[in-house]
């Protein structure tokens, strides 16, 4: 079990909280220690909208250990409306085929359980197609 690690990351995982650089105003996700754009120290929290579009995607049929119960699942790189990209699973896909450029929005979902069936259930962000 890795409880401290999951606890430490809960703001970004549950609520997509990143940062805005106090020096160059770049929006940053996930949070970093140094702004990748201006090399200033990054530390001001910023709430992302959760809106974005699919940059690329693939379907995992052969999952790594710990993800077997989710198989098959779709992972994507999502370009957030505020600029940064993020890697996440897609969910609630229904019959709709995934397409590059498809608008998606963030939801909080169960990612996996940490350890055996008595382990902590770890939640985090996934993205689903925007309801038309």
């Amino acid at each position: 079990m890795e409880i401290p690690r999951h606890w430490r990351l809960k703001k970004q995982r549950y609520a997509l909280v990143g940062e805005v650089c106090p020096h160059c105003e770049a929006k940053i996700f996930p949070p970093r220690d140094v702004c990748p754009h201006c090399s200033g120290e990054a530390k001001t929290p910023y709430q992302f909208s959760g809106q974005g579009e699919v940059y690329s995607y693939t379907v995992m049929n052969d999952a790594p250990a710990g993800f077997e119960e989710n198989t098959p699942y779709t992972v994507a790189v999502v370009k957030l409306a505020e600029g940064p990209m993020v890697t996440a699973q897609l969910t609630d896909l229904g019959a709709e085929p995934v397409k590059i450029g498809m608008p998606v929005e963030m939801v909080t979902r169960r990612i996996r359980s940490d350890g055996n069936d008595r382990g902590m259930i770890v939640y985090g962000y996934k993205f689903r197609p925007v309801m038309q």
């Binding site: 996930p30 690329s56 693939t58 710990g66 993020v86 590059i100």
Partner: peptide
Amino acid sequence: FDYEGFEGVTPAAQAALLMQRYIY
């Protein structure tokens, strides 16, 4: 690990994400 491995991504999946985008 915190932001890719945690989401169930593997080295092969990373390559698949790039190839899918390249083809598109």
